[in-house]
C-alpha cells in the first residue's frame, strides 16, 4: 500500500483478509456481487451451474478484504466471506519519519 508518509501507527494497522466461498449451485447469476465488490475480486464465470446460470468466480481472491458486501447483497445466500488472519500493512515507497 502506498502512503504519502508511513502512518505512525502502521505497525498496529491490519488489513482484514477474507476467504471467499461461493455456493455455485445456489447462484442465480444476478451479477450483484461482481458489480458491487469494491476490490474487483469477482468476475462472471463462463461456466454454467446445473440450473443454467453463470456463477461468479474469484479472479483476485487475494484482494478480498472481508467487507461482506457480496454476502449482504446476494439475494440467494450463495456467497460469503470468512475471516482469515489479518495481515500487517505492507509499506512501499513511503518514508518513515
Amino acid at each position: 500500500m502506498r502512503f504519502w508518509r508511513t502512518p505512525l501507527d502502521a505497525d498496529k494497522m491490519k488489513i482484514p483478509r477474507g476467504e471467499l466461498h461461493i455456493i455455485v449451485e445456489r447462484c442465480k447469476g444476478c451479477e450483484f456481487c461482481v458489480e458491487y465488490c469494491p476490490r474487483d475480486v469477482l468476475e462472471m464465470s463462463d461456466e454454467f451451474n446445473s440450473k443454467g446460470y453463470h456463477p461468479p468466480k474469484a479472479v483476485r481472491p487475494e484482494n478480498c478484504v472481508n467487507c461482506d458486501l457480496c454476502e449482504m447483497i446476494c439475494p440467494e445466500f450463495a456467497i460469503y466471506c470468512l475471516t482469515v488472519e489479518e495481515e500487517p500493512v505492507p509499506v512501499e515507497g513511503g518514508k518513515t519519519s
Binding site: E19, I23, V24, E47, P56, P61
Partner: peptide, 15 residues
C-alpha cells in the same frame, strides 16, 4: 465444479 482458474481453496461447493 469450480470455475476455471480459481484456487480450490477459495471455492466451496454447496454440499
Amino acid at each position: 465444479m469450480s470455475p476455471k482458474g480459481v484456487p480450490e481453496a477459495v471455492i466451496a461447493a454447496v454440499s
